[in-house]
């Protein structure tokens, strides 16, 4: 693909603007997505940070859950950060009642695993496949991955916990590269989208 891939950012709630800016910096054509019909024509999709319970409810309410599940099953490349990682998990360890995910990565996640806001932190994290040294990880009431299936690659750990994973063309991080101005993780995703197109 020579032109920029078109990558949507699920804009139900959360830090959508930061992802749009990071994707643009990584040379993608970024667009906000809120409706099922807006999924057509996308080369990839980002599920932003936010509140996973809210995103889950709004997705169900506006008929996005099933179309998104189908798109992911059909191979749409997706990247999720924080709440986005939760939404891409096949299983949540401690879901709120009625909280459903889109799935796509064979893993079990624990919500708010690193603690509440007072425990939110920044630390350097080395991510496999990201050149140029560790990335600044911003962890905000962050989840971690409890366990992964045989086909899920672990790309990063912090303090003994899995914080970045990939299965096929679906990528997820517990932390928020979109808040740092370092676009290397977004570049990793955009280059995977290009390669798959």
């Amino acid at each position: 693909m020579t032109s920029s891939p078109t990558i949507g950012v699920l804009a139900l709630q959360g830090d959508v603007r930061e992802h749009l800016a990071a994707l643009a910096a990584a040379d993608a054509a970024a667009t906000a997505v809120r409706r099922p019909e807006e999924l057509a024509g996308l080369d990839g999709l980002v599920i932003p940070g936010g509140e996973s319970t809210t995103i889950s409810k709004l997705a169900a309410l506006f008929g996005l859950t099933e179309p998104l599940r189908a798109a992911i099953r059909d191979g749409l490349p997706v990247y999720g950060t924080c709440a986005g990682l939760i939404m891409l998990a096949d299983k949540i360890l401690d879901p709120r009642s009625g909280q459903e995910t889109f799935g796509g990565i064979d893993m079990i996640v624990r919500r708010n695993a690193f603690g509440r806001q007072n425990e939110s932190f920044e630390a350097f994290v080395e991510v496999e496949g990201v050149p140029g040294g560790p990335v600044e990880g911003v962890f905000i009431r962050a989840p971690w991955v409890e366990s992964v299936g045989a086909n899920t690659e672990v790309l990063a750990e912090y303090d003994g916990h899995i914080v970045a994973v990939r299965q096929g063309s679906v990528l997820a991080t517990s932390f928020h590269p979109e808040l740092t101005g370092d676009h290397r993780v977004h570049e990793l995703f955009v280059s995977a989208v290009r390669a798959g197109s």
């Binding site: 603007r17 940070g49 509140e51 009431r141």
Partner: peptide, 8 residues
Amino acid sequence: GMAEQLKG
């Protein structure tokens, strides 16, 4: 960054 997650 915490407040950014609450947007919308």
